[in-house]
Design a protein around this nucleic acid. Structure first.
Length: 548
RNA sequence: GUCCCUGUAGUUCAAUGGAUAGAACAGCGGCCUUCUAAGCCGCGGAUGCAGGUUCGAUCCCUGCCGGGGACACCA
């Protein structure tokens, strides 16, 4: 609908030009909005305000003049109101026509083809969660995890070819710390007296690993034997952690990844040689104090970054460079959507600089998810891997259910801070708005089940609740489009809530089965509402139950 | 010290520079002999402070005050 009005207004501006009403008029940037209040139009544009600014006339006057050029099918009346909105009121035939469309498209209703350019779907890579394999997935990971998952779902619905990816940080010192932690706990478990330094990981999961691991008895005291044992523990622990994470993502979180990308696997000789040649050939690196620096400040970063340390080891940023080449050169992706916790905001500068340096500027969207503060009994709970204090996502899901947890993380703008009150989440899980939405879906399922087969009778309107519900249902395609461009996933639950509310009102005012007779018009409205609720919930990865 | 977020109702959060700032929860008062009361109807209640840009600012700019987070040859 929005698009129809927009197209029409573009033509209006052309007409104004052609008829020399305003020969100099340029098409201004005008907006089309939905009515905020029921007294306003069904659809509105502030074209008049935009034009007024250019022409230095009153928006009201301009609106009145434009009005005469607007003649649209399905629109009954057009009115101009202050401060310069042009309101469109659609008629019943228009509403019924749109309804028919929803019923025909069913599960496909809401999809669009924004991601298809010149007949080809764009290759998008969405990378998210990517928690280090040195500890469990905690509550704070939930935000990036679910936000990324939903962005991927929405992009798919918008015609993009989406690859979801988990980047495994299995390279570098932290993995050794993990191995050392497990090894020492294992030895303690065997009754061997060995100390446990402060900087090792403290959580119970380390002890669990230590109990589970089976090592062949190695003679202690020998350096070689100790080193061998260390390597064995390292490989086993890492593997165990990664498998655990995979299982949780797929089974508990309902997040399916297409690719599990190992950081270690990027550091092959071939990759490294190519990268070094590329960097040197393009004068992107220099040596200083025995280390190799990447010239990132030339490309907008606030300082140059070390990529090869004095001791010859690669830094994390080196991995990032390899990863960029892997993505843009080898895999030829068009765009990379990268979800990061706010504590990583320092990456933005260097990664953008690196993308620019290798000639792929502007192909990356970094989405920061602000940290979640945990509140328990009115006090903030600090989470720390080293101290072993955290609440795992798994525990929370087991307690209140995946639907509630997903809804909670999705309902807020990812870029704002939020508090998660554990005590409330537990107590008030029944009052969660997700149930309000699911209840609407279940109610519809139940009524339609009673109504039996619905005949495709003409749809007519008898009250404002029916009209309001219908107009809301029309918005789904635009919500999906919006989210696919803005990544503002919180708009989905907001929208679902609005639709559910509209349905509950409709349900209270319009009986579908009356005196044992099914009102086919209303049954079809309910059917359409069910489609919209189900599709919206599916995009969020939340179930749409038929019974509650 | 530098940089990134952020301040809206009692609470948790919405609102591409536009119309009367929306919900939910909490509070108060109504509605079940009829399709699921996990529902509906009604009542109160908010943009941290000071300037600026604009016809118009919750939104943009500056300063102040408050909250969170980053500033490694760690990953």
């Amino acid at each position: 609908m929005k698009q129809v009005i927009k197209d029409k207004l573009e033509r209006v501006v052309d007409e104004l030009k052609a008829n020399h009403v305003w020969p100099d008029v340029q098409l201004p940037k005008f907006d089309i909005t939905y009515p905020v209040h029921k007294d306003h139009g069904d659809y509105a544009t502030n074209l008049a305000m935009a034009l007024a600014k250019i022409l230095k006339k009153s928006p009201m006057d301009i609106g009145e003049e434009i009005k005469e050029y607007i003649d649209m099918e399905g629109v009954d009346t057009v009115e101009v109101v202050k401060p310069g909105f042009i309101n469109f009121f659609v008629n019943e035939r228009f509403l019924a026509g749109g309804m028919r469309l929803i019923l025909e498209q069913g599960a496909d209703y809401g999809k669009n083809t924004l991601g298809v350019v010149n007949g080809k779907p764009q290759e998008y890579l969405v990378e998210f969660l990517s928690a280090n394999p040195t500890g469990p997935i905690h509550l704070g990971n939930g935000r990036g995890g679910f936000t990324g998952d939903v962005i991927a779902r929405v992009l798919k619905s918008s015609g993009y070819n989406v690859t979801t990816e988990y980047y495994i940080n299995d390279y570098g010192a932290q993995v050794d710390t993990l191995a050392e932690s497990v090894l020492r706990r294992y030895l303690q478990e065997q009754g061997i007296n060995i100390d446990y330094p402060e900087d090792l990981y403290k959580g119970d999961y380390i002890k669990d690993l230590a109990k589970k691991i089976k090592l062949k008895d190695a003679p202690l005291g020998s350096q070689e034997a100790m080193q061998e044992m260390r390597n064995e523990v390292k490989e086993w622990s890492l593997n165990e952690m990664i498998n655990g994470i995979k299982e949780i993502c797929e089974q508990k979180l309902d997040i399916q990844y297409d690719v599990w990308k190992s950081e270690k696997s990027l550091h092959t000789k071939k990759n490294v040689d190519r990268a070094e040649k590329f960097l040197r050939d393009n004068n992107l690196v220099y040596e200083q104090d025995g280390a190799l620096f990447f010239n990132s400040s030339q490309f907008g970063d606030d300082k140059d970054r070390v990529i090869v340390k004095k001791n010859g080891e690669h830094t994390y940023f080196y991995s990032d460079l390899l990863y960029l080449l892997d993505k843009y050169v080898d895999r030829k992706i068009d765009h990379w959507v990268w979800l990061l916790g706010a504590d990583h905001h320092g990456y933005k500068g260097r990664m953008e600089a690196a993308s620019k340096a290798i000639g792929h500027e502007g192909k990356m969207d970094i989405i920061f998810t602000q940290l979640v503060r945990l509140i328990f009994n009115g006090k903030e709970l600090k989470m720390s891997k080293r101290k072993g204090t955290f609440v795992t996502l798994e525990e929370l899901i087991d307690e209140v259910g995946l639907d509630v947890v997903r809804w909670f993380f999705l309902m807020h703008d990812a870029n704002t801070h939020m508090d998660f009150d554990l005590s409330l989440a537990r107590e008030e899980s029944d009052k969660n708005p997700v149930y309000y939405v699911q209840y609407a879906h279940a109610r519809i399922a139940s009524v339609l089940d009673k109504a039996g087969d619905i005949e495709s009778a003409p749809i007519t309107y008898t009250n404002s609740a029916e009209e309001h519900l219908t107009k809301l249902l029309f918005q789904l395609p635009e919500v999906v489009e919006d989210v696919s461009q803005s990544y503002g996933v919180h708009k989905l639950p907001q929208y679902a809530l609005e639709v559910a509310r509209a349905f509950h009102k409709f349900y209270a005012s319009s009986r579908i089965i009356e005196d044992d007779a099914v009102n086919a018009s209303r049954a079809q409205m309910a059917q359409a509402a069910k489609i919209v609720l189900a599709n919206t919930l599916a995009l969020m990865g939340i179930s749409a139950p038929d019974k509650m």
